[in-house]
Design a protein around this nucleic acid. Structure first.
Lengths: 256, 256
DNA sequence: GGTTTCATTTGATTAAGATCAATGAATTTG
DNA sequence: CAAATTCATTGATCTTAATCAAATGAAACC
Protein backbone atom coordinates (compact mmCIF):
# COMPACT_ATOMS: atom_id res chain seq x y z
CA UNK A 1 0.00 0.00 0.00
CA UNK A 2 1.70 3.19 -1.13
CA UNK A 3 0.58 6.70 -0.33
CA UNK A 4 -2.49 7.75 -2.28
CA UNK A 5 -2.50 10.72 -4.55
CA UNK A 6 -4.79 13.47 -3.31
CA UNK A 7 -7.90 13.51 -5.48
CA UNK A 8 -9.72 16.75 -6.26
CA UNK A 9 -8.86 19.02 -3.37
CA UNK A 10 -8.88 22.80 -3.36
CA UNK A 11 -5.68 24.64 -4.23
CA UNK A 12 -2.99 22.81 -2.39
CA UNK A 13 -0.22 24.43 -4.28
CA UNK A 14 0.54 27.15 -1.74
CA UNK A 15 0.46 24.74 1.16
CA UNK A 16 3.85 23.72 2.35
CA UNK A 17 2.44 21.81 5.28
CA UNK A 18 3.28 18.14 5.36
CA UNK A 19 -0.32 17.40 6.26
CA UNK A 20 -0.93 17.75 2.58
CA UNK A 21 0.19 14.21 2.08
CA UNK A 22 -1.60 12.80 5.06
CA UNK A 23 -4.79 10.94 4.38
CA UNK A 24 -6.29 12.53 7.41
CA UNK A 25 -6.10 15.75 5.55
CA UNK A 26 -8.92 14.67 3.29
CA UNK A 27 -11.03 14.15 6.32
CA UNK A 28 -10.33 17.57 7.78
CA UNK A 29 -10.28 19.88 4.86
CA UNK A 30 -13.76 19.36 3.47
CA UNK A 31 -15.26 20.42 6.75
CA UNK A 32 -14.53 24.08 6.96
CA UNK A 33 -10.88 24.00 7.85
CA UNK A 34 -9.07 26.34 5.52
CA UNK A 35 -5.46 26.37 4.48
CA UNK A 36 -4.39 28.78 7.21
CA UNK A 37 -5.93 26.72 9.97
CA UNK A 38 -4.49 23.67 8.37
CA UNK A 39 -1.02 25.09 8.62
CA UNK A 40 -1.60 25.84 12.25
CA UNK A 41 -2.77 22.28 12.79
CA UNK A 42 0.25 21.09 10.94
CA UNK A 43 2.55 22.93 13.30
CA UNK A 44 1.38 21.09 16.37
CA UNK A 45 1.79 17.69 14.78
CA UNK A 46 4.84 15.64 15.56
CA UNK A 47 6.24 13.27 13.08
CA UNK A 48 7.94 10.18 14.37
CA UNK A 49 10.20 7.62 12.91
CA UNK A 50 8.23 4.83 11.33
CA UNK A 51 7.34 1.92 13.57
CA UNK A 52 8.51 -1.52 12.62
CA UNK A 53 6.19 -4.49 12.72
CA UNK A 54 5.45 -5.40 16.31
CA UNK A 55 6.43 -2.07 17.84
CA UNK A 56 4.00 -0.35 20.15
CA UNK A 57 2.39 3.01 19.66
CA UNK A 58 1.25 2.80 23.25
CA UNK A 59 0.48 0.17 25.82
CA UNK A 60 -2.40 -0.24 28.25
CA UNK A 61 -1.96 2.06 31.18
CA UNK A 62 0.28 4.52 29.34
CA UNK A 63 -0.81 8.01 30.15
CA UNK A 64 -2.81 9.64 27.42
CA UNK A 65 -1.00 12.54 25.81
CA UNK A 66 -1.66 12.31 22.10
CA UNK A 67 -3.89 10.98 19.41
CA UNK A 68 -2.23 9.23 16.49
CA UNK A 69 -3.16 9.44 12.86
CA UNK A 70 -2.02 6.56 10.72
CA UNK A 71 -0.24 7.82 7.62
CA UNK A 72 0.74 4.53 6.13
CA UNK A 73 0.85 0.95 7.29
CA UNK A 74 -1.60 -0.41 9.84
CA UNK A 75 -2.07 -0.93 13.52
CA UNK A 76 -4.06 -3.26 15.71
CA UNK A 77 -5.48 -2.27 19.05
CA UNK A 78 -6.19 -4.83 21.70
CA UNK A 79 -6.87 -5.11 25.39
CA UNK A 80 -5.13 -7.72 27.42
CA UNK A 81 -7.60 -9.57 29.60
CA UNK A 82 -6.72 -11.41 32.78
CA UNK A 83 -3.66 -13.61 32.49
CA UNK A 84 -2.08 -13.23 29.16
CA UNK A 85 -5.01 -13.46 26.82
CA UNK A 86 -5.90 -10.59 24.62
CA UNK A 87 -8.86 -9.33 22.70
CA UNK A 88 -8.29 -7.48 19.47
CA UNK A 89 -10.57 -4.45 19.40
CA UNK A 90 -9.71 -2.97 16.05
CA UNK A 91 -7.57 -2.71 12.97
CA UNK A 92 -6.60 0.77 11.91
CA UNK A 93 -5.79 1.80 8.38
CA UNK A 94 -4.20 4.89 6.88
CA UNK A 95 -6.16 8.04 7.58
CA UNK A 96 -7.67 6.76 10.78
CA UNK A 97 -7.23 8.10 14.28
CA UNK A 98 -6.11 5.90 17.14
CA UNK A 99 -6.38 6.65 20.83
CA UNK A 100 -9.80 8.27 21.03
CA UNK A 101 -10.93 5.85 23.70
CA UNK A 102 -8.26 7.13 26.07
CA UNK A 103 -9.68 10.63 26.48
CA UNK A 104 -12.05 9.74 29.33
CA UNK A 105 -9.60 8.12 31.65
CA UNK A 106 -6.51 9.99 30.58
CA UNK A 107 -4.75 6.71 30.12
CA UNK A 108 -4.83 4.16 27.37
CA UNK A 109 -7.16 1.23 27.97
CA UNK A 110 -5.62 -0.76 25.18
CA UNK A 111 -2.39 -1.41 23.36
CA UNK A 112 -1.70 -0.27 19.82
CA UNK A 113 0.83 -2.24 17.87
CA UNK A 114 2.11 -1.94 14.33
CA UNK A 115 1.11 -4.79 12.04
CA UNK A 116 3.70 -3.78 9.48
CA UNK A 117 6.03 -0.86 8.94
CA UNK A 118 3.83 2.04 9.87
CA UNK A 119 4.21 5.77 9.99
CA UNK A 120 2.00 7.91 12.16
CA UNK A 121 1.52 11.52 13.11
CA UNK A 122 1.38 12.26 16.78
CA UNK A 123 -1.17 14.91 17.70
CA UNK A 124 -0.71 16.22 21.24
CA UNK A 125 -4.22 16.33 22.64
CA UNK A 126 -3.78 19.42 24.81
CA UNK A 127 -2.62 21.46 21.88
CA UNK A 128 -5.42 20.06 19.75
CA UNK A 129 -7.94 21.18 22.32
CA UNK A 130 -6.44 24.66 22.48
CA UNK A 131 -6.55 24.84 18.75
CA UNK A 132 -10.09 23.55 18.78
CA UNK A 133 -11.15 26.52 20.88
CA UNK A 134 -9.78 28.82 18.18
CA UNK A 135 -11.01 26.94 15.16
CA UNK A 136 -14.66 26.01 15.57
CA UNK A 137 -14.57 23.75 12.54
CA UNK A 138 -11.88 21.66 14.12
CA UNK A 139 -13.79 21.09 17.30
CA UNK A 140 -16.77 20.04 15.32
CA UNK A 141 -14.69 17.77 13.19
CA UNK A 142 -13.26 16.08 16.21
CA UNK A 143 -16.71 15.35 17.56
CA UNK A 144 -17.66 14.13 14.17
CA UNK A 145 -14.76 11.75 14.01
CA UNK A 146 -15.60 10.34 17.38
CA UNK A 147 -19.19 9.96 16.40
CA UNK A 148 -18.08 8.11 13.31
CA UNK A 149 -16.01 5.81 15.43
CA UNK A 150 -19.05 5.12 17.59
CA UNK A 151 -21.06 4.29 14.54
CA UNK A 152 -18.44 1.88 13.30
CA UNK A 153 -18.28 0.19 16.65
CA UNK A 154 -22.02 -0.24 16.59
CA UNK A 155 -21.80 -1.85 13.22
CA UNK A 156 -19.19 -4.21 14.46
CA UNK A 157 -21.29 -5.06 17.46
CA UNK A 158 -24.08 -5.97 15.13
CA UNK A 159 -21.71 -8.23 13.36
CA UNK A 160 -20.37 -9.95 16.40
CA UNK A 161 -23.65 -10.10 18.18
CA UNK A 162 -25.52 -12.01 15.72
CA UNK A 163 -24.12 -13.50 12.68
CA UNK A 164 -22.61 -16.68 11.43
CA UNK A 165 -18.87 -17.08 11.06
CA UNK A 166 -19.34 -16.68 7.33
CA UNK A 167 -21.11 -13.34 7.71
CA UNK A 168 -18.50 -12.07 10.08
CA UNK A 169 -15.58 -12.70 7.82
CA UNK A 170 -17.43 -11.41 4.77
CA UNK A 171 -18.32 -8.24 6.64
CA UNK A 172 -14.77 -7.74 7.84
CA UNK A 173 -13.38 -8.04 4.35
CA UNK A 174 -15.97 -5.69 2.91
CA UNK A 175 -15.36 -3.27 5.74
CA UNK A 176 -11.65 -3.14 5.08
CA UNK A 177 -12.31 -2.89 1.37
CA UNK A 178 -14.63 0.07 1.86
CA UNK A 179 -12.25 1.88 4.18
CA UNK A 180 -9.44 1.45 1.69
CA UNK A 181 -11.67 2.70 -1.10
CA UNK A 182 -12.54 5.83 0.86
CA UNK A 183 -8.85 6.58 1.10
CA UNK A 184 -8.19 6.07 -2.55
CA UNK A 185 -6.76 2.56 -2.44
CA UNK A 186 -8.09 -0.37 -4.38
CA UNK A 187 -11.17 -1.87 -2.77
CA UNK A 188 -10.73 -5.03 -4.79
CA UNK A 189 -7.24 -6.13 -4.01
CA UNK A 190 -5.22 -5.65 -0.87
CA UNK A 191 -2.93 -7.21 1.68
CA UNK A 192 -4.25 -8.30 5.02
CA UNK A 193 -1.53 -7.09 7.31
CA UNK A 194 -2.92 -8.97 10.29
CA UNK A 195 -2.49 -12.65 11.00
CA UNK A 196 -5.27 -15.20 10.81
CA UNK A 197 -5.02 -15.34 14.54
CA UNK A 198 -5.74 -11.63 14.87
CA UNK A 199 -8.67 -11.93 12.51
CA UNK A 200 -10.09 -14.87 14.42
CA UNK A 201 -9.63 -13.12 17.71
CA UNK A 202 -11.25 -9.95 16.43
CA UNK A 203 -14.24 -11.79 14.99
CA UNK A 204 -14.66 -14.08 17.95
CA UNK A 205 -13.90 -17.22 15.99
CA UNK A 206 -11.32 -19.99 16.12
CA UNK A 207 -8.33 -19.66 13.82
CA UNK A 208 -9.25 -22.91 12.15
CA UNK A 209 -12.69 -21.56 11.29
CA UNK A 210 -11.20 -18.48 9.66
CA UNK A 211 -8.84 -20.60 7.68
CA UNK A 212 -11.60 -22.91 6.48
CA UNK A 213 -13.74 -19.93 5.54
CA UNK A 214 -11.01 -18.45 3.37
CA UNK A 215 -10.69 -21.78 1.65
CA UNK A 216 -14.42 -22.04 1.14
CA UNK A 217 -14.80 -18.48 -0.09
CA UNK A 218 -12.08 -19.16 -2.57
CA UNK A 219 -13.57 -22.36 -3.91
CA UNK A 220 -16.94 -20.56 -4.15
CA UNK A 221 -15.28 -18.02 -6.39
CA UNK A 222 -15.88 -15.13 -4.03
CA UNK A 223 -12.24 -14.22 -3.73
CA UNK A 224 -8.75 -15.43 -4.19
CA UNK A 225 -6.43 -15.54 -1.26
CA UNK A 226 -2.81 -16.40 -1.03
CA UNK A 227 -1.24 -15.87 2.30
CA UNK A 228 -1.86 -12.18 3.04
CA UNK A 229 -2.91 -11.17 -0.41
CA UNK A 230 -6.62 -11.03 -1.12
CA UNK A 231 -8.58 -10.21 -4.25
CA UNK A 232 -12.31 -9.77 -3.84
CA UNK A 233 -13.81 -11.23 -6.98
CA UNK A 234 -17.49 -10.94 -6.16
CA UNK A 235 -18.25 -8.18 -3.71
CA UNK A 236 -21.96 -8.38 -4.44
CA UNK A 237 -22.18 -11.93 -3.27
CA UNK A 238 -19.95 -11.20 -0.30
CA UNK A 239 -22.33 -8.42 0.67
CA UNK A 240 -25.21 -10.87 0.64
CA UNK A 241 -23.26 -13.24 2.86
CA UNK A 242 -22.46 -10.40 5.22
CA UNK A 243 -26.11 -9.88 5.96
CA UNK A 244 -27.93 -11.61 8.79
CA UNK A 245 -27.98 -15.14 7.51
CA UNK A 246 -31.60 -16.03 8.04
CA UNK A 247 -34.40 -15.19 10.43
CA UNK A 248 -32.49 -13.36 13.07
CA UNK A 249 -34.79 -11.89 15.59
CA UNK A 250 -38.42 -11.69 14.86
CA UNK A 251 -39.36 -8.31 16.13
CA UNK A 252 -41.41 -6.88 13.35
CA UNK A 253 -42.17 -3.22 13.32
CA UNK A 254 -44.83 -2.39 15.85
CA UNK A 255 -46.53 0.83 16.63
CA UNK A 256 -45.37 3.28 19.29
CA UNK B 1 -36.45 2.90 39.57
CA UNK B 2 -37.26 6.22 41.15
CA UNK B 3 -35.18 9.36 41.00
CA UNK B 4 -32.01 9.13 43.04
CA UNK B 5 -31.15 11.60 45.73
CA UNK B 6 -28.07 13.64 44.89
CA UNK B 7 -25.17 12.41 47.00
CA UNK B 8 -22.45 14.79 48.20
CA UNK B 9 -22.46 17.63 45.71
CA UNK B 10 -21.19 21.14 46.26
CA UNK B 11 -23.62 23.84 47.43
CA UNK B 12 -26.68 23.31 45.33
CA UNK B 13 -28.84 25.48 47.45
CA UNK B 14 -28.54 28.62 45.37
CA UNK B 15 -29.07 26.79 42.13
CA UNK B 16 -32.56 27.02 40.84
CA UNK B 17 -31.73 25.23 37.64
CA UNK B 18 -33.69 22.08 37.02
CA UNK B 19 -30.50 20.36 36.00
CA UNK B 20 -29.92 20.02 39.68
CA UNK B 21 -32.11 16.96 39.72
CA UNK B 22 -30.77 15.49 36.55
CA UNK B 23 -28.34 12.63 36.91
CA UNK B 24 -26.34 14.05 34.08
CA UNK B 25 -25.55 16.89 36.36
CA UNK B 26 -23.28 14.68 38.41
CA UNK B 27 -21.36 13.95 35.29
CA UNK B 28 -20.92 17.59 34.32
CA UNK B 29 -20.31 19.37 37.54
CA UNK B 30 -17.18 17.61 38.73
CA UNK B 31 -15.35 18.62 35.61
CA UNK B 32 -14.91 22.31 35.97
CA UNK B 33 -18.35 23.50 35.11
CA UNK B 34 -19.41 25.96 37.75
CA UNK B 35 -22.85 27.03 38.85
CA UNK B 36 -23.05 29.96 36.46
CA UNK B 37 -22.16 27.90 33.44
CA UNK B 38 -24.51 25.26 34.65
CA UNK B 39 -27.37 27.72 34.64
CA UNK B 40 -26.49 28.67 31.13
CA UNK B 41 -26.47 25.04 30.13
CA UNK B 42 -29.76 24.62 31.84
CA UNK B 43 -31.31 27.38 29.77
CA UNK B 44 -30.70 25.63 26.48
CA UNK B 45 -32.18 22.37 27.62
CA UNK B 46 -35.71 21.52 26.64
CA UNK B 47 -37.84 19.40 28.83
CA UNK B 48 -40.38 17.19 27.18
CA UNK B 49 -43.38 15.31 28.33
CA UNK B 50 -42.43 11.85 29.50
CA UNK B 51 -42.44 9.14 26.88
CA UNK B 52 -44.65 6.15 27.38
CA UNK B 53 -43.40 2.64 26.84
CA UNK B 54 -42.88 2.00 23.15
CA UNK B 55 -42.73 5.65 22.10
CA UNK B 56 -39.82 6.80 19.98
CA UNK B 57 -37.25 9.38 20.90
CA UNK B 58 -36.15 9.29 17.29
CA UNK B 59 -36.19 6.92 14.38
CA UNK B 60 -33.54 5.96 11.87
CA UNK B 61 -33.16 8.64 9.26
CA UNK B 62 -34.56 11.41 11.46
CA UNK B 63 -32.41 14.46 11.09
CA UNK B 64 -30.06 15.00 13.97
CA UNK B 65 -30.91 18.08 16.00
CA UNK B 66 -30.42 17.15 19.61
CA UNK B 67 -28.80 14.86 22.06
CA UNK B 68 -30.98 13.36 24.75
CA UNK B 69 -30.12 12.79 28.36
CA UNK B 70 -32.15 10.15 30.13
CA UNK B 71 -33.52 11.51 33.39
CA UNK B 72 -35.54 8.51 34.46
CA UNK B 73 -36.72 5.32 32.85
CA UNK B 74 -34.78 3.62 30.09
CA UNK B 75 -34.41 3.47 26.36
CA UNK B 76 -33.20 0.93 23.86
CA UNK B 77 -31.47 1.85 20.65
CA UNK B 78 -31.55 -0.43 17.67
CA UNK B 79 -30.91 -0.40 13.97
CA UNK B 80 -33.33 -2.04 11.63
CA UNK B 81 -31.49 -4.26 9.18
CA UNK B 82 -32.85 -5.27 5.81
CA UNK B 83 -36.44 -6.46 5.82
CA UNK B 84 -37.93 -6.07 9.22
CA UNK B 85 -35.25 -7.49 11.45
CA UNK B 86 -33.56 -5.38 14.02
CA UNK B 87 -30.40 -5.38 16.02
CA UNK B 88 -30.43 -3.86 19.49
CA UNK B 89 -27.32 -1.75 19.92
CA UNK B 90 -27.74 -0.51 23.45
CA UNK B 91 -29.77 -0.02 26.58
CA UNK B 92 -29.61 3.42 28.11
CA UNK B 93 -30.14 4.18 31.75
CA UNK B 94 -30.71 7.40 33.67
CA UNK B 95 -27.83 9.83 33.36
CA UNK B 96 -26.73 8.57 29.99
CA UNK B 97 -26.65 10.44 26.70
CA UNK B 98 -28.34 9.09 23.62
CA UNK B 99 -27.76 10.18 20.05
CA UNK B 100 -23.99 10.66 19.98
CA UNK B 101 -23.64 8.38 17.00
CA UNK B 102 -25.71 10.74 14.87
CA UNK B 103 -23.25 13.63 14.90
CA UNK B 104 -21.23 12.42 11.92
CA UNK B 105 -24.01 11.99 9.46
CA UNK B 106 -26.37 14.57 10.82
CA UNK B 107 -29.08 11.99 10.88
CA UNK B 108 -29.87 9.19 13.26
CA UNK B 109 -28.57 5.80 12.23
CA UNK B 110 -30.72 4.03 14.76
CA UNK B 111 -34.02 4.21 16.56
CA UNK B 112 -34.40 5.04 20.22
CA UNK B 113 -37.47 3.71 21.94
CA UNK B 114 -38.67 3.94 25.50
CA UNK B 115 -38.68 0.64 27.36
CA UNK B 116 -40.88 2.08 30.08
CA UNK B 117 -42.19 5.49 31.08
CA UNK B 118 -39.16 7.64 30.50
CA UNK B 119 -38.34 11.29 30.87
CA UNK B 120 -35.53 12.90 28.97
CA UNK B 121 -33.90 16.28 28.49
CA UNK B 122 -33.45 17.38 24.93
CA UNK B 123 -30.18 19.21 24.33
CA UNK B 124 -30.11 21.02 20.99
CA UNK B 125 -26.72 20.20 19.57
CA UNK B 126 -26.12 23.52 17.81
CA UNK B 127 -26.65 25.42 21.01
CA UNK B 128 -24.50 22.97 22.89
CA UNK B 129 -21.67 23.54 20.43
CA UNK B 130 -22.02 27.32 20.76
CA UNK B 131 -21.93 26.97 24.48
CA UNK B 132 -18.98 24.64 24.21
CA UNK B 133 -16.99 27.36 22.50
CA UNK B 134 -17.62 29.63 25.49
CA UNK B 135 -17.11 27.08 28.21
CA UNK B 136 -13.94 25.10 27.61
CA UNK B 137 -14.78 22.61 30.32
CA UNK B 138 -17.97 21.70 28.54
CA UNK B 139 -16.28 20.95 25.28
CA UNK B 140 -13.81 18.80 27.04
CA UNK B 141 -16.53 17.03 28.92
CA UNK B 142 -18.37 16.27 25.72
CA UNK B 143 -15.30 14.67 24.22
CA UNK B 144 -14.83 12.80 27.41
CA UNK B 145 -18.35 11.45 27.31
CA UNK B 146 -17.92 10.29 23.76
CA UNK B 147 -14.66 8.67 24.61
CA UNK B 148 -16.36 6.87 27.46
CA UNK B 149 -19.00 5.64 25.12
CA UNK B 150 -16.29 4.31 22.82
CA UNK B 151 -14.72 2.50 25.69
CA UNK B 152 -17.98 0.90 26.67
CA UNK B 153 -18.61 -0.20 23.13
CA UNK B 154 -15.20 -1.80 23.04
CA UNK B 155 -15.97 -3.68 26.18
CA UNK B 156 -19.18 -4.92 24.70
CA UNK B 157 -17.39 -5.97 21.56
CA UNK B 158 -15.06 -8.03 23.66
CA UNK B 159 -18.07 -9.64 25.18
CA UNK B 160 -19.83 -10.43 21.98
CA UNK B 161 -16.73 -11.37 20.14
CA UNK B 162 -15.59 -14.08 22.27
CA UNK B 163 -17.48 -15.47 25.11
CA UNK B 164 -19.97 -18.14 25.93
CA UNK B 165 -23.65 -17.38 26.34
CA UNK B 166 -23.16 -17.63 30.07
CA UNK B 167 -20.41 -15.00 30.11
CA UNK B 168 -22.41 -12.66 27.98
CA UNK B 169 -25.46 -12.64 30.20
CA UNK B 170 -23.37 -12.41 33.35
CA UNK B 171 -21.48 -9.46 31.91
CA UNK B 172 -24.65 -7.71 30.84
CA UNK B 173 -26.15 -8.03 34.30
CA UNK B 174 -22.99 -6.82 35.99
CA UNK B 175 -22.72 -3.97 33.52
CA UNK B 176 -26.22 -2.77 34.26
CA UNK B 177 -25.59 -3.22 37.95
CA UNK B 178 -22.45 -1.10 37.80
CA UNK B 179 -24.08 1.65 35.78
CA UNK B 180 -26.93 1.82 38.25
CA UNK B 181 -24.51 1.92 41.14
CA UNK B 182 -22.63 4.83 39.60
CA UNK B 183 -25.87 6.75 39.53
CA UNK B 184 -26.78 6.01 43.10
CA UNK B 185 -29.22 3.18 42.54
CA UNK B 186 -28.95 -0.26 44.06
CA UNK B 187 -26.47 -2.43 42.20
CA UNK B 188 -27.93 -5.52 43.78
CA UNK B 189 -31.58 -5.34 42.95
CA UNK B 190 -33.25 -3.85 39.91
CA UNK B 191 -35.86 -4.25 37.24
CA UNK B 192 -34.88 -5.27 33.75
CA UNK B 193 -37.04 -2.98 31.70
CA UNK B 194 -36.23 -4.78 28.48
CA UNK B 195 -37.79 -8.02 27.28
CA UNK B 196 -35.96 -11.33 27.09
CA UNK B 197 -36.13 -10.90 23.37
CA UNK B 198 -34.27 -7.59 23.54
CA UNK B 199 -31.65 -9.11 25.79
CA UNK B 200 -31.17 -12.06 23.47
CA UNK B 201 -30.98 -9.83 20.45
CA UNK B 202 -28.47 -7.55 22.11
CA UNK B 203 -26.26 -10.41 23.24
CA UNK B 204 -26.51 -12.28 20.00
CA UNK B 205 -28.27 -15.26 21.54
CA UNK B 206 -31.56 -17.05 21.08
CA UNK B 207 -34.38 -16.11 23.47
CA UNK B 208 -34.56 -19.66 24.67
CA UNK B 209 -30.92 -19.58 25.65
CA UNK B 210 -31.39 -16.44 27.70
CA UNK B 211 -34.37 -17.93 29.44
CA UNK B 212 -32.50 -21.12 30.25
CA UNK B 213 -29.56 -19.13 31.54
CA UNK B 214 -31.73 -17.15 33.94
CA UNK B 215 -33.14 -20.40 35.21
CA UNK B 216 -29.71 -21.88 35.61
CA UNK B 217 -28.23 -18.83 37.29
CA UNK B 218 -31.10 -18.93 39.71
CA UNK B 219 -30.72 -22.57 40.59
CA UNK B 220 -26.99 -22.01 41.02
CA UNK B 221 -27.79 -19.38 43.59
CA UNK B 222 -26.25 -16.54 41.62
CA UNK B 223 -29.41 -14.49 41.52
CA UNK B 224 -33.12 -14.58 41.88
CA UNK B 225 -35.26 -13.56 39.00
CA UNK B 226 -38.98 -13.18 38.75
CA UNK B 227 -40.21 -11.76 35.53
CA UNK B 228 -38.44 -8.40 35.27
CA UNK B 229 -37.21 -8.24 38.81
CA UNK B 230 -33.66 -9.37 39.45
CA UNK B 231 -31.62 -9.65 42.63
CA UNK B 232 -27.94 -10.35 42.20
CA UNK B 233 -27.04 -12.62 45.08
CA UNK B 234 -23.45 -13.42 44.25
CA UNK B 235 -21.79 -10.75 42.16
CA UNK B 236 -18.36 -12.22 42.80
CA UNK B 237 -19.24 -15.46 41.16
CA UNK B 238 -21.04 -13.68 38.36
CA UNK B 239 -17.87 -11.71 37.72
CA UNK B 240 -15.92 -14.93 37.38
CA UNK B 241 -18.47 -16.25 34.90
CA UNK B 242 -18.28 -13.01 32.95
CA UNK B 243 -14.61 -13.57 32.24
CA UNK B 244 -13.34 -15.40 29.17
CA UNK B 245 -14.37 -18.90 30.02
CA UNK B 246 -11.21 -20.73 29.24
CA UNK B 247 -8.23 -20.46 26.95
CA UNK B 248 -9.40 -17.79 24.63
CA UNK B 249 -6.68 -16.77 22.32
CA UNK B 250 -3.19 -17.82 22.92
CA UNK B 251 -1.20 -14.79 22.10
CA UNK B 252 1.15 -14.45 25.00
CA UNK B 253 2.94 -11.23 25.57
CA UNK B 254 5.81 -10.89 23.18
CA UNK B 255 8.48 -8.30 22.87
CA UNK B 256 8.14 -5.13 20.84
C1' DG C 1 -64.82 -12.06 32.82
C1' DG C 2 -63.38 -14.39 29.40
C1' DT C 3 -60.85 -14.44 25.14
C1' DT C 4 -57.02 -13.18 22.40
C1' DT C 5 -52.40 -12.10 22.07
C1' DC C 6 -47.88 -11.87 23.35
C1' DA C 7 -43.91 -13.23 26.31
C1' DT C 8 -41.61 -16.69 28.66
C1' DT C 9 -40.31 -21.20 29.87
C1' DT C 10 -39.19 -26.06 29.02
C1' DG C 11 -38.01 -30.17 26.22
C1' DA C 12 -36.00 -32.74 22.08
C1' DT C 13 -33.23 -32.51 18.13
C1' DT C 14 -29.87 -30.56 15.02
C1' DA C 15 -26.19 -27.89 13.23
C1' DA C 16 -22.38 -24.75 13.49
C1' DG C 17 -18.28 -24.00 15.12
C1' DA C 18 -14.78 -25.18 18.88
C1' DT C 19 -11.41 -28.21 20.16
C1' DC C 20 -7.99 -31.76 19.53
C1' DA C 21 -4.45 -33.54 16.58
C1' DA C 22 -1.36 -33.49 12.92
C1' DT C 23 0.89 -31.83 8.80
C1' DG C 24 2.72 -28.44 5.67
C1' DA C 25 4.46 -23.77 4.38
C1' DA C 26 6.91 -19.60 5.47
C1' DT C 27 9.75 -16.68 8.04
C1' DT C 28 13.43 -16.04 11.41
C1' DT C 29 17.69 -17.22 13.57
C1' DG C 30 22.12 -18.97 14.44
C1' DC D 1 21.85 -22.97 4.73
C1' DA D 2 19.80 -25.65 7.98
C1' DA D 3 17.34 -25.66 12.18
C1' DA D 4 13.90 -23.65 14.76
C1' DT D 5 9.86 -21.34 15.29
C1' DT D 6 5.79 -19.37 13.98
C1' DC D 7 1.80 -19.44 11.08
C1' DA D 8 -1.68 -21.69 8.21
C1' DT D 9 -4.28 -25.42 6.60
C1' DT D 10 -6.86 -29.77 6.90
C1' DG D 11 -9.27 -33.67 9.18
C1' DA D 12 -12.01 -35.97 13.04
C1' DT D 13 -14.65 -35.50 17.03
C1' DC D 14 -17.25 -33.15 20.55
C1' DT D 15 -19.81 -29.22 22.73
C1' DT D 16 -22.69 -25.49 22.80
C1' DA D 17 -26.25 -23.04 21.57
C1' DA D 18 -29.73 -22.68 17.67
C1' DT D 19 -33.79 -24.46 16.03
C1' DC D 20 -38.12 -26.78 16.22
C1' DA D 21 -42.14 -27.75 18.94
C1' DA D 22 -45.18 -27.18 22.60
C1' DA D 23 -47.04 -25.65 26.99
C1' DT D 24 -47.75 -22.23 30.38
C1' DG D 25 -48.22 -17.67 32.20
C1' DA D 26 -49.18 -12.70 31.92
C1' DA D 27 -51.22 -8.95 30.10
C1' DA D 28 -54.25 -6.47 26.80
C1' DC D 29 -58.79 -6.24 24.71
C1' DC D 30 -63.52 -6.57 23.95
Amino acid sequence: MSNAEAPNVVSLSGLKAACRNCSLYHLCLPLGIDADDMEELDRIIRRRRPLRRGEYLFQPGDSFKSLYAIRSGSVKTYTPTEEGYEQVTGFHLPGELVGLDAITRECHPCAARALETTSVCEIPFERLEELGAKIPGLQRQLLRLMSKELLEDEQLMMLLGKKSAESRLAALLLGISERLRQRGFSPREFNLSMSRNDIANYLGLAVETVSRLFTRFQSDGLLTVERKHVVLLDRERLAILARPSGGDTDQRECRP
